[in-house]
Amino acid sequence: MRRYQHVAADGVRRPQSERLRRRQRWYFALMGVCLLLILLAWNLVRLWSTTAAVAMSAVAAVIPPVAVIVANWGEDR
């Protein structure tokens, strides 16, 4: 099955620099969420619930691979 490229209204693809900037923003936003979850889990939440802190850490552990996949999505075409 062939995937179609996203094109602008005039039929021209967005510049590489714009696509790179968008991917970088997504990557840094996801990694920021990951860092925030870890910091909150082990500096604040663990005082009330160790289980919740471990669950937050587990979610934070899944975010980096997802961030890499999102940052590189569609650039192999």
Rank of each mutant, 00 (worst) to 15 (best):
M31V: 11
L36F: 10
E18F: 10
E75C: 07
A67D: 01
T51G: 15
N43R: 12
L30P: 00
E18C: 05
L37G: 01
H6G: 05
I38D: 05
Q5K: 15
H6N: 06
R25K: 10
S17P: 01
F28T: 12
M1P: 00
H6A: 08
P65N: 08
A41H: 02
A67W: 02
L47S: 13
R2D: 09
R14L: 14
L47M: 12
R77W: 03
T50R: 08
T50S: 14
V66M: 15
C34D: 04
T50D: 12
A71Y: 05
A52V: 12
Q24T: 11
A61H: 03
L30Y: 03
S57W: 05
A29E: 03
R2S: 01
R22Q: 11
E18T: 11
R19K: 10
I69C: 08
A60K: 04
S57G: 15
L30A: 12
V66D: 00
A67S: 13
I63Y: 09
M1W: 03
A67T: 01
P64V: 06
L40M: 11
C34N: 12
V54F: 10
S17M: 03
L39P: 03
R19S: 12
Q16W: 15
L39N: 07
W48I: 07
S49K: 00
T50I: 10
A41S: 14
A41I: 02
A53Y: 00
I63N: 03
R25V: 15
I69K: 11
G11C: 04
I63G: 02
V33L: 15
A71F: 06
R3M: 07
A41M: 04
A29M: 05
E18K: 13
Y4R: 11
A60W: 02
M56A: 02
T51F: 06
A61V: 13
V45N: 03
R2K: 14
R21P: 01
R46P: 01
L44A: 15
P64N: 06
Q24C: 09
L40H: 09
R22L: 10
W26I: 07
V62C: 11
A67G: 08
A67V: 10
L20K: 11
L36K: 02
G11E: 02
A71R: 07
M56S: 00
V12W: 07
C34Y: 02
M31Q: 14
N43W: 15
T51N: 06
A71N: 03
R21V: 04
Y27W: 11
A41Q: 04
Q5A: 07
G74A: 12
W48P: 01
N43Q: 13
E75W: 00
I63F: 09
V54A: 14
R23C: 04
W48N: 09
F28N: 05
T51Q: 08
